[in-house]
Design a protein around this nucleic acid. Sequence first.
DNA 1: ACCCGATCGATGACATGTCAACGAAACGGC
DNA 2: GCCGTTTCGTTGACATGTCATCGATCGGGT
Lengths: 162, 162
Amino acid sequence: MGAPRWLDEREDRAWRGYRRMRRLLDLELARQLTQDAGLSEADYDVLSDLSETPQGRLRLRELADRMLWSRSRLSHHLTRMQQRGLVTREECADDARGSVVVLTPAGRQAIGSAAPGHVAAVRRHLIDLLTPAEIEALGALTHRVVDHLGGRAPHPRHDPEA
Amino acid sequence: MGAPRWLDEREDRAWRGYRRMRRLLDLELARQLTQDAGLSEADYDVLSDLSETPQGRLRLRELADRMLWSRSRLSHHLTRMQQRGLVTREECADDARGSVVVLTPAGRQAIGSAAPGHVAAVRRHLIDLLTPAEIEALGALTHRVVDHLGGRAPHPRHDPEA
DNA sequence: ACCCGATCGATGACATGTCAACGAAACGGC
DNA sequence: GCCGTTTCGTTGACATGTCATCGATCGGGT
């Protein structure tokens, strides 16, 4: 590679802003969730994805893929959530290797009461600060990047080699 | 609070896109850094911030604040980086409590050889996928959010109480 | 039916991040 | 100067994430 093309002033501003926003937003949303609902962001995401399915049940593998988590991470995390009574595991009917993650009533309750406050915080600290055009632009740009990156294997897998 | 104002379709698209982009970009950049330079993103950020100062030296507290890290996290991380010879600690002349983090030659070397590849990856997977208008918008919007959130205490401190 | 490679999920060792507590030093009112 | 408060950085216990590995099962080719 020749001389590296550094970021110009505008690019640098966008990149730094992005990273700083990321961090601050994370801290604030995590703080809000813990305080108001006793959930971590990870907990919230698991419950949220589960509750978006009609039955509140998903194969572990399916859930991991949707969340872009490793199966290992999800397995560990579910063990902890299970101990708190938010989810349970069931054996999978059509695949004896698999297990199904199931939302418990307590889990439904938890996500139900956490969601309004969380969404309000997302609005207060992000969405409501943006113009409609910016929201549109953010949607477009992030999805473009996701499509660009998403083509690759969903997980840290060794690429097929060049 | 009354009925929660959920996100409408466009807002939801932006929010989900943001979170997915975040995750994918992280995975890819971390992969690239580890593979090509043997550094984690955390390592890179520490070295990067240090190398942006004229002397390659910063008070621990100052560095932690810039990075939005807790002092504890930074202290732990520096211990590990120190063992790898990337940084050292020196006593602080004007404040006997303090310590100064100093970039070693090896640290300079590391960031120097990692930077081109890292910037190239940032371009390839983000910046170069955006139009100039989008870069401008991203810069504006992120900085607005940062200003909004940044007013609060830089760290998980108990708020002065209402 | 049988193999062989791939997939599923769990697990343990280890890396990293958080949180509360600490001792030392600095600051500020008196 | 002295005392109480705050700040600085470190530390240890613990929570969380990663990575390599495992046993079980699945599935396709023959």
